[in-house]
Amino acid sequence: MLSTIHFLNIILPFLYLFTFAAYLHDFLQEKNTFANIKRIILFLTLTLNCFYLIFRTIEFNHPPITNKYEIFALVACTIAFSYFLLELLTDIRGTGAFIIFFSVIFQTLSSVFIEDLIEVPEILKNRLLGIHVISAMLGYSGFIMSAVYGILYLQMYRAIKKNKFGLFFNRLPSLEILEKLNYYSLIIGFALLTVAITIGIIWLPDAFPDFSYSDPKLITTGIIWLIYGSGLVYKIFSDWYGKKLIILSLIGFAAAMFSLILSNILQNSFHIFN
């Protein structure tokens, strides 16, 4: 199994790159040469990525969440999975390149730096922790997608407003669709982050003796949750159109990135495992 894991570790970045290239080709060429093939390629890549994560879990006897490179492989998979689901549900195939790009980056970083970890703290083998991390990663994948669709919306909005009928105008779906994609990704991201936070609040105090509510990672995650949550409340209970929620989703994404960097700088968190 170890050789299979190593083989998948090598080919996965190339598979994501190939998938990304197929989506990018169709976007740039304004043609749907690979309309169905690219979806199949994405599905195969995604399946192999899932097998890779399962094999790692079995072989090393812990879910792949014990260091950032394992988590990167998980993030690459969750982003691709979220996009694949969204594409299946909406049949909008023109935006894949912008999302799968992130899977390429995360999987490449993971494949280059990941190591075979057999000995990890017992706490990291916990199944509840696995659900906590996976739901958090799926949540952040939702936020990444939401931010990408937000940027695409702003590009399209600008193109129409300024009457620039170029590549973006021709290839992107309508503004309303981009707004909906941004909104749905945000809802999914928010719901899954809520699940992750709930599990964390219930389970973490028991699992970690040095647990603290003033932990920087908990505070920043809370802020991110509040930013997205307030945006959703405004969207649902008042008439927020287009740009407002989109700008908020971009602020939320920037905050998430800031939180990630900050928590890696401040190493005194109980939330740092490597």
Binding site: M156, I160, L175, K180
Partner: peptide
């Protein structure tokens, strides 16, 4: 252009 603004 209208179709690039509205989804439906």
């Amino acid at each position: 252009v209208v179709e690039k603004i509205f989804a439906d």
